[in-house]
Design a protein around this nucleic acid. Structure first.
Ligand SMILES: [Mn+2]
Ligand SMILES: [Mn+2]
Ligand SMILES: [Zn+2]
Ligand SMILES: [Zn+2]
Lengths: 140, 140
DNA sequence: TATTTTGCGCAACTTAGTTGCATTTAATAT
DNA sequence: ATATTAAATGCAACTAAGTTGCGCAAAATA
């Protein structure tokens, strides 16, 4: 039942102290119902014609969700941002998987990035991003 | 002396069996002289007005260098491709460093990506991409 | 020097995201 | 319930980075 996701979305938005708007509820509701990270375009499609939101507004909602730590943005080489709600992954850093066939991006919630040898002298690491590319379970 | 890089470039291009053109020599020469991965735009700047190459041609040259394994493409979240010659890094996979201040992208030639736990069942890994973000030695 | 690819230049297009500004609306105060 | 106001939205126009099609130029080879 998608309704439950919208209710949950509304509650999460209320909790931020910022305004509860139609757009925010719809978009976060969609993200909550989704198991993978999805793009601006995919969200527009899921909104459909009747619940349509202006593209600029949608960008701004996604930016806001990210800022409020209700969702995170995944960057993946095809120049498209994808978003996933944080409630399933938490705020910690995790790796991502990108399928070479269907292009689906999955959050690997409990996979953390590591590397084999230290950075060059003087370099400071703030964040480590890891993307595994290959075939997802559906496409393999 | 940049001339040496152009001679080296010419030799490398000859070795592919494909045509030795002004554009290919200039671009590969620039990449050989460079210690970090650089973007289309940065290459255009280095070419300057007199050695200018049409932007489309430049894209095609970079694509060709990548295909011929003379250079590799680095993807880094700011929607810009960057390129580095392979002669200093080899063909093996390696991690990259992106400075949050100066935006420079460095190939960490001997740093390999690892991860903490296995992929979900059914997933197949073909390639692992790792980017460390933080401050480079210059900016730290 | 002529022929044959292969690569180049131009113009027009696409995709994804951004900016400025006027209008609407959620929250709140009366 | 209505007015007020700050925040969010919609629209139009813009930007950055890369792509496509096609006629023309120039390397390689004969
Ligand atoms: Mn994620
Ligand atoms: Mn590299
Ligand atoms: Zn897949
Ligand atoms: Zn730096």
């Amino acid at each position: 039942m998608l309704t439950n996701f919208y209710e949950q979305a509304e509650e999460m938005i209320r909790h931020t102290g910022d305004r509860i708007t139609r757009g925010r509820v719809l978009v976060l509701g969609i993200l909550l119902a989704e198991k993978k990270a999805i793009s601006h375009h995919e969200i527009e499609e899921k909104l459909g014609d009747d619940s349509a939101i202006n593209r600029v507004t949608l960008y701004r909602i996604l930016e806001w969700l990210n800022k409020k730590d209700l969702a995170h943005k995944v960057i993946s080489g095809d120049r498209k941002w994808r978003f996933r709600t944080n409630i399933y992954t938490g705020l910690h850093q995790h790796a991502h998987f990108k399928c070479s066939i269907c292009a689906a991006v999955t959050c690997l919630s409990d996979v953390k990035a590591k590397y084999s040898s230290p950075l060059p002298p003087g370099y400071q690491s703030h964040e480590v991003e890891l993307t595994v590319k290959g075939l997802c379970a559906e496409c393999a």
